[in-house]
């Protein structure tokens, strides 16, 4: 079902750290420890431009932490990474977002006392009215604001949030918040969206449409990196899957190669055996 332009990874070997034909994001030796535990320890990872990359791994594998490091929300202990050919390690989060690397949060962060529409409009970049002096002069930004609002309305309709347009975002349900966050991230017009569990808590019908949105995005040229626990979803829409465990990339490859991968099975089963707290053989 993968569209031809997204089939570019067909000839790429399924091994951790493998080079991609046209990498958008290149990560090198990025590490982060919290106290005793090494939450992230990624030797080398490349994310291909224009495709959907799924990031999987058991709970606590370091997926969210890796997102936080790459997007500037947390400081890496070591390592460098580049985005779109430019080194971006250490850049402030808002600068990374403006460069086109936009993330959503596993624990949604909607702006409760802003309306749904205001949440959306906030996402647009380069707004003249966001500077202090032009802000006072409505004619200086009214046109742009109207264009932003049209764009927001189109997205809200696509995400089935148009009925909630003028409600405070704080009154949205958990699943609606997830949708709003994804839609809002798209207002930034990102080169790459990084979605942290976008489907969690979204009902099956909306899930279908959200999946459709994500594939449409990739077809439109936006790169997608998403974290997801639902294997069905990962297998269906990913062009490439990366699996993390204990902070490291333990496997990557096309979806079909991941299901039977020994390291992946061990990581998931290992983590399940871990749960009762019995400890694990090294």
């Amino acid at each position: 079902m993968t569209a031809p332009p997204r089939g570019v990874l067909a000839g790429t070997a399924a091994e951790p750290g493998v080079a991609k034909p046209d990498p958008l994001l290149v990560v090198d030796r990025v590490g982060k420890a919290f106290g005793g535990i090494q939450a992230v320890d990624v030797e080398h990872l490349e994310v291909q431009r224009g495709v959907i990359t799924g990031l999987i791994g058991p709970n606590g594998a370091g997926k969210t932490t890796l997102f936080n490091l790459l997007t500037g929300f947390d400081r890496a202990d070591t390592g460098t990474w580049s985005f779109d050919g430019r080194a971006v390690a250490g850049l402030a989060a808002h600068r990374l977002a403006r460069r086109g690397m936009v993330r959503t949060f596993q624990l949604t962060k909607v702006l409760g006392r802003l309306t749904v529409l205001e949440n959306m409009k906030l996402g647009a970049t380069g707004q003249r009215g966001e500077r202090l002096v032009p802000a006072l002069l409505r004619p200086a930004w009214r046109r742009q604001e109207a264009a932003i609002e049209r764009r927001a309305d189109v997205l809200l309709a696509r995400f089935k949030l148009d009925a909630m347009r003028d409600a405070y975002a704080g009154y949205l349900s958990g699943g609606q918040r997830k949708l709003l966050e994804v839609a809002r991230a798209l207002m930034v017009e990102p080169t790459m969206v990084m979605l942290d569990e976008p489907m969690a808590g979204v009902n099956p019908a909306l899930r279908q449409s959200l999946l459709g949105q994500i594939t449409d995005l990739a077809d439109g040229g936006t790169s997608v990196l998403f974290v997801e626990h639902d294997m069905d979803v990962v297998m269906r829409i990913s062009d490439w899957v990366v699996c993390m465990a204990q902070g490291q990339v333990i496997a990557e490859g096309p979806p079909s190669s991941i299901l039977g991968n020994r390291a992946v099975i061990d990581a998931y089963l290992g983590s399940q055996h871990d749960e009762p707290g019995l400890g694990e053989q090294p």
Binding site: A92, H94, A97, V102, K109, L114, R184, V188
Partner: peptide, 16 residues
């Protein structure tokens, strides 16, 4: 107002 509600959300949308 977005800063008042959630700084990180504002940051993730490119706001300084």
């Amino acid at each position: 107002r977005s800063v008042r509600e959630d700084e990180d959300a504002a940051r993730s949308l490119g706001k300084n």
